[in-house]
């Protein structure tokens, strides 16, 4: 029996008021792959993330996680099924401390009555807190765990969000522009960190504009334009694909460059 892909999209379609923002999207993300999802602004990347994580309901098609359809599940049950995500704009809870934000990521693993009603904040050596602090250390987040998250620098908060998304022990991690706003050093660190977690069998799906980051991290790339899939293949083939070039550069300039090649 073949191994099911971590994520399968089968003709995923979403309309807002009659306008299709994603149309008949089909692709697979194999287990353990590091896949990039790119496309010009407004191509439907974030919408697709919202459809997969369940923020929006799809109007057509199927979404399978490890071969099981999840499109009818509410977002929290998708988290339980092994899916986790970050947001384009940092969505950490501003009034929670660093460690509390990270422990929030454990919620689906600790939602039995006993865990819900034990005084987490008073147990400084609980397994939850220990686990959260370990993850902070592994990701190189070197701050006071009890510091309020709102005052921390942007790059650090971005990293905390990735760690929080990892705390539910997902099999598929979806990151929406994780490198946006990071300096080159932070970007390299993030890439190394994500590779290290991916070694452990985690599947990654990453929306990103920074193409050097994509080249460094992702072996495979999926390209969207105007809500349609226009490329699905190895990352190194993206630049040479005429449809992708057309999407990014506009058809006339591609034609002009094509003519230039001929000449």
């Amino acid at each position: 029996m073949a191994i099911e892909p971590a994520l399968t999209l089968e003709g995923v379609t979403k309309r807002f008021g009659g306008l299709a923002v994603t149309q008949d999207i089909r692709f697979e993300v194999p287990v353990g792959a590091r896949t990039a999802l790119i496309g010009p602004n407004g191509a439907g990347k974030t919408t697709l993330f919202n459809l997969i994580s369940g923020v929006y309901k799809i109007d057509g098609g199927r979404i399978l996680l490890d071969g099981r359809p999840i499109q009818a599940l509410p977002p929290r049950k998708r988290v339980r099924a092994g899916l986790s995500r970050s947001f384009q704009n940092i969505r950490l809870m501003p009034h929670l401390s660093v460690v509390e934000n990270i422990m929030l990521g454990q919620h689906t693993l600790a939602s039995d009555i006993g865990s819900l009603l034990s005084p987490l904040a008073w147990q400084r050596r609980s397994k939850w807190r220990t686990q959260a602090e370990d993850s902070m250390r592994r990701a190189g987040i070197d701050v006071d765990p009890d510091a309020p998250v709102s005052g921390l620098p942007y790059g650090l908060r971005k990293k905390i969000e990735v760690v929080r998304a990892l705390m539910s022990r997902p099999r598929l991690l979806m990151l929406d522009e994780p490198a946006a706003g990071l300096n080159p050093r932070e970007t390299a660190e993030l890439s190394a960190f994500l590779k290290s977690v991916a070694w452990e069998g985690l599947t990654l799906l990453v929306v990103e504009h920074d193409m050097s980051f994509v080249h460094d991290l992702c072996d495979r790339t999926v390209v969207l334009n105007f809500g349609r899939l226009i490329y699905d293949g190895p990352t190194h083939g993206v630049q040479d694909d005429s449809q992708v070039r057309e999407a990014y550069l506009g058809s006339r300039r591609v034609a002009a460059q094509g003519a230039g090649h001929v000449a």
Binding site: P75, V79, F87, M93, H95, H107
Partner: peptide
Amino acid sequence: DDEDASVVMGV
């Protein structure tokens, strides 16, 4: 703090 993000955290 953020109801929508809490949903996606599995709450």
